[in-house]
Amino acid sequence: MEKLKKITSNHLFLPLFALCLLLVFNAFATPGFFTIEFQNGQLFGRIIDILNRASILVILSMGMTFVIATGGIDISQGSVIAISGAVCCYLIGGNGDGTANMPLPVACLVAVLVCAVCGVWNGFLVSKLKIQPMVATLILMTAGRGIAMLITEGQNITVYYKPFTYIGGSLPGSPLPTTIYIAAIMVLFVVFIQKKTSVGLFVQAVGINSNAARRTGLKVSAIIFMVYVFSGVCAGIAGLMESSMIAAADPNNAGLNMEMDAILSVALGGTLLSGGKFYVGGSIIGAITIQTMTTTLYALGVSSEQLPVYKALVVILICLLQSEKFKNILEKRAVEKAVKQG
C-alpha cells in the first residue's frame, strides 16, 4: 500500500499511466498499431507517425513548461508558429522551378530569430511592464496571424524547393523523420541546462516566491524575460517543422490551438499552472500522450471538429486527479472500505 502510494504520487505516474492506457487500447482497437516496416531505407508505422507529430508538441511544451514555472503562461505560441512558417517560406519563395531565393539554413535561422523577437516582446510586456502574462501574450496571439498574413501578403505560399520538406519529413537515407532528431536535440539541450546550470532552481524560485527571490539576489525580471524568449524560440522551431510538413506557409491554420495542447501537456506532466516546481520530463511524456490520443481518435474516425470534446474530457480528468480535495475523497473512501473489510 505504502509502495503503491509512492508510485502514484510520482509526477511521472499520471502521464505514463495515461500513455500506457492509450497504447493498450490501441493494441486491441487499431490493428497493426505497433507494426513498424522498413521500406526504402525508411521506417514506417503508426508509432513513427505519432512521434513525428509529437515532436512539435514536445518542443512547444518544453518552452511552455519554463514559462508556466515562473507563474506565467504563453498563449501566443500557436500564432508564433504561423509567423515562423511565413517568414521561412517567404524567404525561400514559392518558385515553381524548385529553386530557393535564400539558402535554407539562413531562412530557418532568420525565422527562428524573428520568433525570438516575438518572445522578447512577450518578455518585455510581462517582466518590464508587469502586464499579466495571459493578457500580454494574448496580444501576440491575436496579432500574430495578422503579422504572418502581412509577411505572406495574404496568400498561402507553397514551397517547391525540395530540401525544405526534409525538416518535417526525412533526410535522404535517414530511417527516422528529422523532427524526431530535432526534438531529441532540444530535449538534450534542456537536460543539459537542468543539470549543469542553475536555470531550473532560479525559475522555480521566481515561480514560488518572486519577492524573496529578488531579495536573495536573483534578477527576477531577467529570468522571466528569458523564459518568454525561450518559448518564442521553441515556437519558431516548431513552426519550421509544421510548415515543412505541408511545404507551405498557412498563416490561418498553422499551429492553430497548439498552445492549448502545449499547456495541456505541461499540466498532464504534473507541473502546476500556478507555477513553482516544474517537471520537463513530465511535459515531454505529456506531449507524446496528447499526440497519441489525437492520432488514436482520428484513427477511430472522430472528426477534427469533435476532437476538442475528447480533449476537454481529458482536461477534466487531469484537474480531478490533481485536486487535493478529490484525492482526499478517494483516500477517505479507500480507508472506509479497508475498515469495513476489517
Binding site: 522555480q204 524560485a205 514560488i208 516566491n209 519577492n211 524573496a212 527571490a213 531579495r215 513553482g276
Partner: peptide
C-alpha cells in the same frame, strides 16, 4: 529580511 514567509523563504524548495 523581516517577514520570513513573504520575503525570506522559498517555501516549495
Amino acid at each position: 529580511p523581516e517577514d520570513r514567509k513573504i520575503q525570506g523563504i522559498i517555501g516549495d524548495l
